[in-house]
């Protein structure tokens, strides 16, 4: 063996492996299959109007799934993100209707609150070294109680509404919850936000120092620290990013519906995680992609509406989704093993 020549068995690794280790590969294959399936079942599904219809739930879910994917790549979970979208909506509507704030000012206040929640989540996780699963489960329950308790105390009911009359409503609505027209079909603006958030997250992840740090703290926080990565700051920033996404989605939904239920967002936290995992994120951290999570959300949207278009009972939705999740997790594990097989 001459110097610099590696183990001759290495030669077998080539293009297939490089393609397979793309985390979003499984999600892309799944999305194509799901689209082909429902498109063959329903003409409405494959029409432009149908597309606008199933892109809509995919968009709001996708924004959250992308943020959660970043957090999961960084090695943490956030179970409170779903309820936080509800909290944001409640604060926004309450300030704008009961206290006469302009919609923009109310949104800013809600943003500050969301950032605080994200910061506290992150701080609690890095300080206590408790699993983020537990810490954010605590936050989830506390926010859930606050949402209900404060809403009831203020209004005597379990919802706040009447946002339409608030100052600045029309402008905010067209920016966040409006529509745009392509070829005579109206699409929700949220779809553009979804694409923008995905593009930004992908850029940060693949092309910035912060992205390198996110992969590192999720892969091995101890080793990352040893290499000089500010691991705690990275993790706190990820929790705050998730909170900003929750603010964006909570505002979009509040502006679209003009009223918010006190139980809004409950149960969504797992849907985000499912979309991120279908998109190739490992539950153990250190691996995944923003595009994958966005496609995971797309699959979600397609299945959600596709079942209705195909004329089936919508009750089967979660069954279908659970199957997708198991398949995706198995596929991810195989891919990962293949990618990181250690040759000795």
């Amino acid at each position: 063996m001459t110097a610099g020549t590696l183990d001759e068995r290495v030669a077998a690794a080539g293009a297939p492996r490089r393609l397979l280790i793309r985390p979003e590969l499984g999600a892309v294959a799944g999305a194509v299959a799901v689209f082909a399936f429902f498109a063959s079942q329903s003409a409405t599904f494959r029409s432009a109007a149908g597309m606008a219809n199933w892109l809509d739930p995919a968009a709001t879910l996708g924004i959250m799934a992308v943020a959660i994917a970043l957090l999961m790549i960084g090695g943490e979970f956030d179970l409170s993100a779903g309820v936080l979208t509800g909290t944001v909506g409640l604060v926004l509507v309450t300030l704008a209707t009961r206290y006469g704030w302009s919609v923009w000012a109310a949104m800013l206040a809600a943003l500050a609150l969301a950032l605080l929640v994200g910061f506290l989540n992150g701080l609690a996780v890095v300080r206590t070294r408790l699993p983020s699963f537990i810490v954010t489960l605590g936050t989830l329950l506390m926010l859930q109680g606050l949402n209900l308790g404060v809403t009831k105390a203020l209004t005597g009911t379990v919802q706040v509404g009447g946002l339409r009359g608030a100052e600045g409503f029309e402008a905010a609505r067209s920016a966040l919850a409006g529509t745009f027209t392509v070829g005579g079909t109206e699409f929700r603006v949220a779809i553009l936000w979804w694409i923008g958030v995905t593009a930004l997250a992908t850029w940060v992840l693949m092309r910035t120092r912060a992205g390198n740090w996110i992969f590192a703290v999720g892969g091995d926080a101890q080793a990352a620290r040893a290499a000089g990565v500010p691991a705690d700051r990275t993790k706190i920033a990820l929790f705050m990013t998730t909170a900003v996404a929750a603010w964006l989605v909570g505002s979009i939904l509040a502006l679209r519906l003009t009223s918010v239920q006190a139980n809004a967002g409950i149960g969504q936290e797992f849907v985000y995680i499912v979309a991120a995992v279908i998109g190739g994120c490992l539950l153990t951290g250190g691996y995944g992609s923003a595009v994958g999570a966005a496609i995971g959300a797309l699959i979600f949207g397609m299945v959600d509406k596709g079942i209705v278009f195909a004329g089936w009972d919508a009750d089967w939705f979660t069954f279908f989704l659970g199957g997708m999740l198991l398949l995706a997790t198995l596929a991810n594990r195989l891919v990962r093993r293949y990618a990181e097989e250690v040759r000795r």
């Binding site: 992969f215 590192a216 091995d220 290499a227 000089g228 990565v229 990181e340």
Partner: peptide, 22 residues
């Protein structure tokens, strides 16, 4: 001995981890 490298990250990302050129 334990090297402080992240197994799931590429060689070049590991090489510059913590001192990334910008």
């Amino acid at each position: 001995q334990d090297l402080a490298m992240i197994p799931l990250m590429s060689v070049w990302r590991n090489f510059f981890l913590g001192s990334e050129p910008t």
